[in-house]
Design a protein around this nucleic acid. Structure first.
Lengths: 189, 189
DNA sequence: GTCTATACGAAGATAGAC
DNA sequence: GTCTATCTTCGTATAGAC
C-alpha cells in the first residue's frame, strides 16, 4: 500500500466536512489535521495561507459540487416542473437531507465574514437568476419569477436552520417538497 | 460619577451583542471583556463557568426580550391579522431589521451545539404553538395552522440567512411583510 | 466587585530534516 | 510531500490585592 496520496481536492473535501461539523472558527488546525489525516505542515504545503486558504478550498469544493450535480438539474431536458423538482432534490442531497448546515452559517459570521461574503452574494445571485429563468419558461413574469426564486432559497435555508434548532429534519423534507409548488403556482395578478 | 455598576442583565445584554457580532466560537474572553467594559476577572465573578455561562446569560436576555416585546403581540387585543403582523414586526426589530444573525446560527454550530440546542427546540416549539393558536382563531384547521406557523418561522430564518449572504436586508423586509398573508390565506383543502 | 498579574494549554504558523 | 520539533500569540481560567 504505497499510501495513495490524496489529491488537493480530496483534502479539500475533508476540510469542508470538518468545517461543516465545527464551523469556521470552531475548526482548529488540529481538528483539520485529524480530519484530513495530514500533519499541520502538510496542510500548509497545500494551503500556504493557513485556515483562510482551507476555507477557500472548502468553498470551492462546495461550488464544484453545486456546479456538477445541482445546477445541471435546471438545465437538463424536461418540463420546468421536473427540472425544478430535481434541482431542489439535488440541493437536499447537498445538505444531506437537512443534517448539514448551510455554508453561509459557517462562513459569514464573525471574522470569517470579511473573507468569504462576496462569494456568497455572487452564488445566491446566480442561483436566483437560474431558477428565475426556468420559472419564466413556465410562463411566470420576470419580476415575479425573481421574487419567487429568492423565496425558494429563503425557504430552503430557513428550513435548514429550523431543522437544526429542532434537532429534526422533518421540516426540511416537507419544505423541499413544498417549494416547487410554490414556485410554479399559477400567477394571479 | 460613582461608576454606576452594571447589573448582571445589562452585562448579559452586551455579551449578547458581542456573540451576535462574532459568533460563539469567535467571541473571545478578550472581546467579551471589551464589549462589557469589565475585566476578565469581573466576568468570572458574574459567570463562574466562563464562556458557557456567558452564552447562557445571552440566551436568557434574548428570551426575556422575546417574552416581553414579541410574544405579547400575539396575545394582545385585536383581530388575528393585526396580532400576527405586530408579532412579526416585533421579531423584525429583534433581528434589527435583518442585520443581526439568528441565535440558532450562533449557538448550534460546533462545540456550542451540545450546550444550547435543547433550548432552541423548546423555543421553536413554543413559537409554533403560539402562532398556530392565533391562526386557529382565524379559522384555520389545527394541523394546517401548525404547518403554516412552522413555515412562517422557516421564512423568517431563511430571509435572515439570505440577507446576510447578500449583504442586503431587502429580502428580509419583503419576507416579513409577506409572512402574515401567507399565514392567513383562505384555506382551500 | 473590580483590578493587575499570571499560569497554562491550545491556537496558528514556521523551520528544517527526511 | 510529509514528518517532528519549535516558536509565538492568543485563549481560558485563576490568584490575590484593593
Amino acid at each position: 500500500m504505497p499510501a495513495p496520496t490524496l489529491t488537493r481536492e480530496e483534502v479539500a473535501q475533508r476540510l469542508l466536512a470538518e468545517f461543516r461539523r465545527s464551523g469556521y472558527e470552531g475548526a482548529s488546525l488540529a481538528s483539520l489535521s485529524a480530519a484530513t489525516g495530514l500533519g499541520k505542515s502538510s496542510l500548509y504545503h497545500y494551503f500556504p495561507n493557513g485556515k483562510v486558504d482551507m476555507g477557500q478550498a472548502a468553498m470551492e469544493v462546495a461550488g464544484a459540487w453545486l456546479q456538477e450535480k445541482v445546477i445541471p438539474q435546471l438545465q437538463a431536458a424536461g418540463d420546468p416542473e421536473k427540472r425544478i423538482k430535481r434541482y431542489f432534490a439535488a440541493l437536499s442531497e447537498f445538505y444531506a437531507k437537512g443534517t448539514l448546515p448551510c455554508l453561509t452559517d459557517l462562513f459569514t459570521i464573525g471574522e470569517a465574514a470579511g473573507h468569504f461574503q462576496q462569494q456568497f452574494r455572487q452564488r445566491i445571485g446566480q442561483g436566483i437568476k437560474l431558477i428565475a429563468g426556468v420559472l419564466e419558461e413556465a410562463g411566470i413574469a420576470p419580476a415575479e419569477a425573481a421574487r419567487r426564486a429568492e423565496d425558494g432559497l429563503v425557504m430552503l435555508h430557513g428550513a435548514l436552520v429550523v431543522a437544526r434548532a429542532q434537532g429534526n429534519t422533518a421540516v426540511f423534507a416537507r419544505t423541499i417538497k413544498a417549494i416547487p409548488a410554490m414556485l410554479l403556482a399559477p400567477q394571479e395578478d
